[in-house]
Amino acid sequence: MLKLIRLEYRKTNLRPYTLSVIIATILFIGFIYLFAYIPRIDEDPELLMFAEYSTVSGLLILVSLTTYSVLASAMFAKMVIDTFDANSLTLIYSYPVRRSAILLSKIIAVLLFTAAAMMISNTVVFTLFFLTESISPLVNDTFVSSVVLDALSLTLLSMAAMSAISVTAMTIGLYRQSVPLTIISTVVILASTNNVFMEVLSNPVILLVTLVLCIVVLSVSTLLAAKHVRDLEVA
């Protein structure tokens, strides 16, 4: 399996994706300071929720989840939907490797890349932000170690959510053999689950339930995709 994953990276031009990650990280740094600065713009009491670390961190996690889910589904569109189209199948089906193994290696390759990118990107953004907060804070809240811990657990949860969302979108796209549908599904799923994510911030039980749910959805989607691929024919 390791060899198959390595081959997936060799076959794919990763440069545009790496570039996207770098640009996204720079934008996130801008966002997190913007979120923190909002309550100071004018003293509107309705904006006071922005004066808390949990809101600032939560918003950044949402932005990052959205960005990386879309990036992952773009990679799935290229690496899975395009290679499992009726013509390109000739290529992978001539290899002495089970079809489901090829699919699985592609899913792991994409998720490894995007999850690692997410981790690195969030770490850079939060480390920088917390560092300047500990020196001269923008946020009114008191800065304690639990703020850092919350950011970390939210990052981990959003990695699981990103995996579940993008693989589900990939499976939907695979059944219809459609790249646009893959991307649209990602956006629709994101839009309809955002609320849940904001709830998660305040409640560790919901956080755990969401995590388990993500893993279940990820597994079911992967199995459905593998089942679909097994019956595909070369055109």
Binding site: S88, T90, L91, P96, R98
Partner: peptide
């Protein structure tokens, strides 16, 4: 899906990819 025979076969089918 037989992994053993695939290396024993080489093919060019229609427009190669």
């Amino acid at each position: 899906d037989d992994g053993h025979v695939k290396p024993l076969i080489g093919s060019v089918i229609e427009t190669p990819v």
